[in-house]
Design a binder for these strands. Structure first.
Length: 670
DNA sequence: ATTAGGG
DNA sequence: CCCTAAT
């Protein structure tokens, strides 16, 4: 057939190259495939939205903030699980819960009611996380609230003497941070001080940073929390997720959000694939440690460790009665136990939000009480997640790497995690919302309802990996799969040596398409690495940005299990003019329909360009050539090339048509 | 493994 | 770019 076809196209003389064929490895991404897709949508839309926000909000700032200097070679972000003291039952499992904070009102909450009874745990948020800014900016109302939180870092408001259930006395200091600051803070000193090279350390000691926060067992301690973090204990929603997986998360095994690009209207977002990556394992910590970032500093707190150490992965539910929780909600935040990520703040479109329930109640938030009037008409639910924490992430990078590369590396790692290594869970009133088919409204997640009790959790995709629980002391490390480092460069090699610093691949000789970049430029596509799973299973936790020439290696820390690769969407690599030129030239010669040959002829060295990519590029080139110049985006392609595209396309289309006509009769005959 | 198309 | 169906 093939040959026949080629002949038809007119390439009688065509010779099959001896070179290796470029193949696009099949990805095994979807462990859970089809069935799940459609079903997961609704609630998932929300999740997707969140994810998008997360990514967007994060990117810039996040990367920028990282400061290598403090770190040695390794940068570790560790996530601790949070626990509520008394409630401590909650075990952190692998999931991460987002903490939602209701925006704003808190300031006002003087009333004791507003505060959580229990200690709060402070969470340590990943720098990344970030706050989703922009969101709600438009709302004035929100704006106020939001601004309180974020803007004006310097300003801090304090509410003192709030007592929580009498147990704890909490002094809350609100500090407003600008988003940036928050992000920025990432590593700074705050971290340093608490930096855990050794997670363990953290547990025990409470780090006190900044002025105010001290961590420790919180139970009856007086704590000062800055920022919105205070809220919480009550709200803590424990996630049962862990083991639940069966029931819960697993429901849909999966999911990775297909694309993070968000559409403005988040609602339509769909999540498509399920990724199987289970790989991302978070290390469960049995300790309750939590870090909080308060002023930019991260603090860790440990709570009730002993009791909790029990390591029950399970479901710990909230001990707190619902009512109380609500109560507490005023304060606004919901925290989660595990801590994967915190998000703060959920608000509905009106700034009012969060308080809904509570509003009526105790929170004396000024004026915000319940103004239904504010509610959005469109019935859209707006959610603001201030920050997400990312699970433990280890990155190893050469000292010689630039800060910029580190930033990118971290960004990539985070993106990878978010994109495929984690799945998002939705918690409502402490319970996991498992039915993805329900609409938000049906679930109760509506603008005027319960936003305060809404939580998001980042959970590792269910992997088969056994969960390893950490022992107390060794909490750390662990369980994770051992994702292998992805290095795009030499995936295979690197796989074996996780720590190996990678390196640039040496440029190979070019073949025809020399101009085309060879792989090394290319970012590691998960695909590439994963393909060779034979070597090891690497999870692509991290991808290294292509542009960096520097050798970077990111290594996920835990490397034990082997297994699956994370299916991740390949990074986008726009075609350069040179590539377009090569493509056009090849197509002119070979015609359309012979993408493998085009690949071999012109892109043999560009491993990241598959024949499918070339075919797609041609498709887009044809489209581009047909639209007006002003509608074109990206790096402008010389008109001359576009003209050639049209010419070649027309020519080959005609050829193909001829071929078809010619064949038709034959078929009938047959 | 490739190709062709839709998304 | 991804995904699928059809080759």
């Amino acid at each position: 057939m093939v040959l026949q076809k080629r002949l038809d196209y007119g390439f009688h003389d065509y010779q099959v190259p001896t070179m290796p064929r470029a193949t696009r490895s099949a990805r095994k991404r979807s462990i859970c495939k089809k069935g799940t897709e459609s079903s997961q949508m609704r609630a998932f839309d929300l999740l997707a939205t969140v994810a998008d926000k997360l990514l967007h909000g994060t990117e810039g700032p996040t990367t920028n903030t990282i400061d290598t200097s403090t770190e040695k070679d390794r940068y570790t972000v560790v996530d601790k699980e949070l626990n509520v003291d008394s409630l401590c039952k909650v075990e952190p499992s692998q999931g991460f819960v987002a903490e939602l904070v209701l925006s704003g009102h808190d300031n006002k909450c003087d009333s004791k009611d507003c505060f959580p009874q229990h200690n709060e745990h402070v969470e340590h948020s990943l720098p990344l996380a970030s706050e989703v800014t922009n969101f709600d900016k438009n709302n004035n109302e929100m704006g106020n609230l939001a601004s309180e939180v974020r803007v004006g870092s310097p300003s801090s408001k304090e509410s003192d003497n709030c007592e929580l259930d009498g147990k704890n006395e909490v002094i809350v200091k609100y500090e407003l941070h600008k988003t940036e600051e928050v992000l920025t803070r990432t590593q700074d000193r705050g971290d340093d001080s608490c930096k855990r090279e050794d997670p363990i350390i953290w547990d025990q000691k409470a780090c006190v940073l900044g002025n105010s926060v001290s961590c420790g067992k919180m139970t009856h301690n007086k704590q000062i929390v800055q920022n919105s973090y205070f809220a919480t204990q009550n709200n803590v929603k424990v996630v049962d997720r862990d083991d639940d997986e069966n029931s819960s998360g697993c429901t849909h095994p999966v999911s990775s959000i297909k694309s993070f690009r968000t559409v403005p209207s988040s609602r339509d977002r769909r999540i498509k694939k399920v990724s199987a990556s289970k790989s991302w394992k978070v290390v469960p910590r049995y300790r309750d440690e939590s870090l909080s970032k308060t002023d930019g500093v991260w603090k860790s707190m440990s709570c009730c460790k002993s009791s909790h150490d029990s390591c029950r992965p399970q479901k710990s539910q909230m001990n707190i009665p619902f009512k109380k929780r609500k109560f507490f909600d005023c304060s606004s935040s919901v925290s989660n136990s595990d801590g994967g990520i915190n998000s703060e703040g959920v608000s509905d479109s009106n700034g009012k939000v969060a308080k809904t329930d509570s509003s009526g109640r105790s929170c004396s938030v000024s004026g915000h009480g319940h103004h239904k009037s504010f509610q959005s008409k469109d019935s859209h639910v707006k959610i603001r997640i201030k920050s997400f924490r990312v699970p433990e992430l280890f990155i190893e990078i050469a000292e010689t790497a630039t800060v910029g590369s580190l930033k990118r590396t971290v960004m990539e790692a985070v993106t990878a995690i978010l994109g495929g290594g984690l799945r998002v869970g939705v918690l409502l009133q402490g319970k996991k919302v498992r039915d993805d088919n329900k609409t938000l409204f049906q679930t109760g997640i509506s603008h005027d309802n319960q936003l305060d009790s809404l939580g998001f959790a980042l959970e590792p995709n269910p992997s088969r990996t056994p969960l390893v629980l950490c022992q107390e002391d060794s909490p750390c490390i662990l369980p994770c799969d051992a994702p292998e480092p992805l290095t795009r460069y030499s995936p295979d090699v690197s796989a074996d040596h996780p720590s190996s610093s990678n390196v640039l691949p040496e440029p190979h000789g070019n073949s025809l398409g020399n101009f085309i970049e060879s792989d090394h430029d290319s970012a590691p596509s998960p695909t590439d690495t994963s393909n060779h799973k034979s070597t090891v299973d690497s999870k692509a936790l991290v991808t290294v940005p292509a542009m960096t020439a520097e050798a970077i290696s990111v290594v996920p820390m835990h490397r034990k299990s082997k297994r699956s690769e994370v299916a991740q969407r390949r990074i986008r690599r726009p075609f350069s003019v040179a590539e377009v030129e090569a493509l056009v030239q090849a197509v002119e010669k070979l015609g359309t329909g012979r993408w493998r040959d085009v690949k071999l002829r012109a892109f043999d060295n560009a491993k990241h360009r598959t024949y499918v990519d070339l075919k797609d590029k041609w498709k887009t080139l044809v489209h581009t050539a047909r639209i007006s110049p002003r509608q074109r985006r990206g790096e402008p392609v010389p008109q001359e090339l576009l003209d050639r595209v049209l010419t070649a396309h027309a020519y080959w289309s005609k050829q193909q048509a001829k071929y078809q006509l010619k064949r038709q009769p034959e078929r009938f005959v047959l």
